[in-house]
């Protein structure tokens, strides 16, 4: 049913640190690797080794040049890498527009999923998503999207430390965090509070679960460390005798 749950028991999601992300694309690659054999498999690629290669990916990393001004008025410019994937919104229109009930939001953990057996491939959900999170599989004729690695996070066949989404498991800089954002005492919630985590396009009213940590502000001034002052050299010995003689 495409009606949204009033509340979910948990709000599982990601916290992405834009200060730390180096744009290495490891999360993109591991996402594709896991999910092309996972819940929404396959993530079809077309012309993978030719011109106009196209394929289904759940995670895409953009790069931006962010220009602003510092507190002293000077222009600042920085490179920001920006991973973009499903935000598992609390009020996602992608679910409510679905005419067949294929799209749904789970009451237990808030994950937004697609039942591929019910999907007619009308693409309306992808139109309704502001974040470009849903990608249509032309080959399979159904819509696909991030599952928050629902087949990893509850998977008792995996060692406990691996029961996190593939993108989180692989991030070499620790820029991706996974947890329950509905629990104010969870590590991710504390991180969001501490770093001032934000929603993307809050004006859309989709109430995304995933949060982004903006780059830390740049320091306007460096700490002043003056060099040692020059002091007169006290000459000794022969040079001291000459100095004394000439100073007379």
């Amino acid at each position: 049913m495409t009606s949204l749950p009033d509340k979910t028991d948990k709000k599982l999601g990601l916290v992405i640190d834009l200060d730390t992300c180096v744009g290495c694309q490891a999360c993109v690659t591991n996402c594709k690797e896991w999910n092309t054999g996972g819940h929404m498999a396959p993530l079809t690629d077309l012309n993978a080794y030719a011109a106009e290669a196209d394929g289904v990916w759940f995670n895409r990393v953009h790069t931006y040049e962010v220009t602003g001004s510092s507190a002293c008025g000077a222009s600042t410019s920085r490179t920001m890498h920006f991973p973009r994937s499903c935000l598992h919104c609390e009020k996602p229109d992608c679910v409510t527009v679905c005419p067949t009930g294929a799209s749904y939001k789970r009451t237990s953990d808030g994950i937004v999923l697609v039942n591929e057996d019910l999907c007619i491939g009308c693409k309306l959900c992808s139109w309704a998503c502001p974040y470009g999170a849903r990608e249509f599989d032309v080959f399979e004729g159904v819509m696909k999207k991030c599952t928050l690695c629902v087949d990893r996070i509850y998977n008792e066949n995996l060692p406990e430390e691996d029961r996190v989404p593939a993108c989180v498991a692989t991030c070499p800089t620790g820029a991706r965090h996974f947890g329950d954002l509905g629990d104010p005492n969870s590590a991710v919630s504390k991180l969001v509070a501490e770093r001032g985590g934000v929603d993307l396009m809050p004006e859309m009213g989709y109430a995304p679960t995933n949060k982004y940590l903006p780059p830390r502000p740049r320091k306007d001034t460096a700490t002043s460390v003056p060099a040692k002052e020059l002091t007169p050299v006290a000459a000794t010995g022969f040079l001291g005798w000459v100095d004394k003689l000439l100073s007379r």
Partner: peptide, 14 residues
């Protein structure tokens, strides 16, 4: 000002 300097993919995606 946020300026896109690199897309995540070289070819047009869905």
């Amino acid at each position: 000002d946020v300026k896109s300097v690199e897309w995540p993919h070289t070819e047009a995606n869905y």
